[in-house]
Amino acid sequence: MSGRYLLQKLARAVLTIIVIVLLNFLLFRAMPGSPARIASHHPGVTQAAIDQLAARWGLDKPLIPDQLVAYVNATLTGDFGLSYQFRGEPVTEVIGDRFWPTMILIGLGELFAIIIGLALGAYAGWRRGSAVDRVGGGISLVLYSMPYFVIGMPLIIVFAAGLGWFPTSGMFDAGATYASGLDQLLDFAHHLVLPLTTVTLGLVGAYSILMRSAIMETRSEDYITTARAKGLTDGRVLRTHAFPNALLPMVTIIAIDLGYVVAGAITAEVVFNWPGIGTLTVDALQARDYPVLQGIFLLLSFTVVLANLVADLVYGFLDPRVRV
């Protein structure tokens, strides 16, 4: 990986973040009738509060440069304003509380889905037409076509409401007191099982379908013939020659897919009432809590851009040819 590649990717990430910040400004500030819009949706927000807001963001001043400068300054210092809904609380704190539950859900979901999806896809693509390929391919396509909440709802019906194995919602038992940290962790894990299964299943389909075609593409490469000519076992050819090469396009695809994962996680959280960014988004949507929505938009976009940057670096690390 050359320095130039690194710089190029960094530059792209920075540019994208600038676009996101500008877009955010345009969406939430420059749209016509912002203060009036706020007032119309929030009878509870007093005229005084709106005036205060207007003064704070310089809404009486021209959009560019004054408002933009004020906005960028605030954003850079992590000031996203105050939530309407959770009166008076800074947006950063409202979001901060919800950040980790979502990260755990998405992070673990990605981890499991990558392991299962890549393994299943690689095997199916390698043994094209085998039972694993046919059955796995069918299941993958169905999972791929299921919105996360469509996966989650039956899980609740069967395993929570029906069999009673897992709680139907939340992250901890309501009002529970714990004897030890371990107890608390176990309760958390118990609540996590179904949402995590939902996110994992939601991702596995896409990953295995994509990995299958990536493997099939490498299968016809000359170096695979070379590896077979070397008398390596079929499994070894797959593991040490086909897989590492098929992994390369997957890194990029998984990174680009992160946006969809975030989307899926939002709906999965709603189904299980998981106290993360997803449920917060829906609450904020209903309450038209624009500062919070704006903060969420920034946070999720940043995270995805950052993850893409990481993916680019991983790619540069995995593919010795990268020097662009």
């Binding site: 490469e221 170096y223 000519a229 070397k230 590492p244 995995l318 593919d319 040819r321």
Partner: peptide, 26 residues
């Protein structure tokens, strides 16, 4: 499985385009 014994140990091959015949990531 039996065939593997003869590949490369008895008969090896040099292909046309070594760029494609060599694994690019190894």
């Amino acid at each position: 499985r039996q065939m593997a014994r003869y590949r490369w140990r008895e008969i090896s091959m040099v292909f046309q385009g070594a760029m494609n015949a060599l694994n690019p990531v190894k």
